[in-house]
Design a protein around this nucleic acid. Sequence first.
RNA 1: CGCGGGAUGGAGCAGUUGGUAGCUCGUCGGGCUCAUAACCCGAAGGUUGCCGGUUCAAGUCCGGCUCCCGCAACCA
Length: 650
Amino acid sequence: MPNKPSYYITTPIYYPSDNLHIGHAYTTVAADCIARYKRMQGYRVFYLTGTDEHGQKIEKSAGANKQAPIDYVNKIVDNIKALWVTMHISNDDFIRTTEARHEEVVKKVFNKIFEKGDIYISEYEGWYCTPCETFFTKRQLHEGKCPDCGREVELLKEESYFFNMAKYAPRLLEHIDKNPDFIQPESRRNEILNFIKGGLEDLCVSRTTFSWGIPVPFNEKHVIYVWFDALINYLSAIGYGSDEEKFEFWPADVHLMAKDIIRFHAIIWPTMLMALDLPLPKKVCAHGWIMLEDGKMSKSKGNVVDPVILTNKYGVDAVRYFLLKELSFGQDGNYSEDMLVSRINSDLANDLGNLISRTVAMIERYFQGLVPSLGTILDIDKELEKVAGIAYDEAALFLEKLDFANYLNAVQRLVARANKYIDENEPWRLAKDEQENSRLGTVLYYLVASIKTAVILLSPAMPTLIERTNEQLAVFASIKDIKWEDAFPWGSDISGVKVKKAQALFPRIDNSAQETQEKMDQQAEKKEKQAKKAEQQTSEEENSYISMEDFAKVDLRVARVISCEKMEKADKLLILKVDVGGEERTVVSGIAKHYEPENLVGKKVVLVANLKPAKLRGTLSQGMILAASDENELEVLTIQSGLDAGTRIK
RNA sequence: CGCGGGAUGGAGCAGUUGGUAGCUCGUCGGGCUCAUAACCCGAAGGUUGCCGGUUCAAGUCCGGCUCCCGCAACCA
């Protein structure tokens, strides 16, 4: 076996505090497309993804669910793995930072850098909020108070380990300077350069305020900082320090990610590698975000797009195609279901799907379902072949640059040219003339050849396309191990291949049908959610009840709004003064988006009177006003009758 | 002056080292009938957010301004 060149590509390891959304799917699909392409090119590919499972956030979420962190995380990781299966992600490994193989390497790395002297123990100085058990930097504070609870903070010193990152800054700068492709796209590169030039500080790489993490090997009081832990996955997955043969994949060819975590990958990670005396990854590439019509996707907005639902509805190939085609890779891009539908209809249904459909239909009708043989080749045929060759070259060129939109565009031009070729040759006219039979055969042969090329070139983006095409147009003797160079030049004889018309490859999505479909899906979704909720409730039944005593702890009162004004420099907050039966209270409420201040004055609202006071952007809020809300609407509970302010509610 | 991104025909976007604007969708007109009401041809439509500068020449470089958006902070 000849020594095949290796190719190592990674996605970030995702944080399993919740199920993943379409943005994660985007990164993973993009990396998958490259991985598949490189395999077709004959590379020995290692495609890695996984999960980053430590940290305070996970510990807290798990605690809130009354679960051990590992149990909490296991469930979500299962969902993530299932998602990658439905999206046909071809990862070669899936690493979890809670696995022993990873923990060992992290400890080894920590030790090694420590022994080298680049990790040292010192004192971390910061403002500590005791109730919140959290350190803050001076910048994070709000008017000198805790940004979380508004209480006083104290300047505390805590023993911590630091990584001597600043030491490597000059070397890193030089490396970025000499390797223009190291950080991509260029706008990110400039951002990173500026950031480093602004000065790097040593990085605090251990924590003592929580325990869900990998302990510092020689000091169990400390837990290793999550990012330090997480980044090492790129080494631990390929057997750093244990499997020399596998470790030959290092250095990674590409670390792919969304733009928000570029700093970790372009600054912290390279300096860690320098400390380990390992070569740096060849490329660190950040793509943009997927924006929705109403802004960035977020859980609190309730507008998260679930890739599972989309894939079930439109098919893996279509969804993957859309993601790669519609978004300009380095830039943020928009998403809406309408955009997805129109992309599928125009590119996949009208052009590609229909091209295959009309070709197959003609072969069935004119040649009894067998691809005819070649006759005399005319200039117009050669031109089509030339276009196929261009598509072949350009597709590879753009894929190398991670320019997915232009890659797919290049193939689309071949598909369009083939459709035009049909019109130019008018096979239906040729079919009426015995004499033209050979010519007709040539035209159809060329169409099949073009389709074969297009389908191969598209297969990294659309992993089930070859198989599905082959059901109608059996041009692939085996659908396994198709090579990139099988696409072009046109060599292998395809005449005599059987053809069988079947269901449309990419059915057109008709709007009215789609709407009804959507409604049905939404209903199904709702039912599913309800079922899930019910299930959860039964499983957590014992924990989910509170006693009457517990409820009585909540002191609910009728409160009359005396005055109300918007808080300055805060778009969501209103400051209300309320009368609670003789006592006046100030309450800050996040309802500014839904209520004009003057409309609330005089209203009687429901106040949680014994809630722990908290400072919000500097103003002390003594209580909470009850309101019902979903993503769109919010209504404050009011008392209509003549009941007095201060009346107890129970 | 917290950090960053953007402003290009109706919509969504491209525009490499500066040389009188491209793509997809949509619209309008025509053609064809093999096909998934698809396909093919043609047309209309932009003073490239505003102002100034550099230059023989700027969407592309420089300075200023306006407006959007994301992050951060605030939903007790």
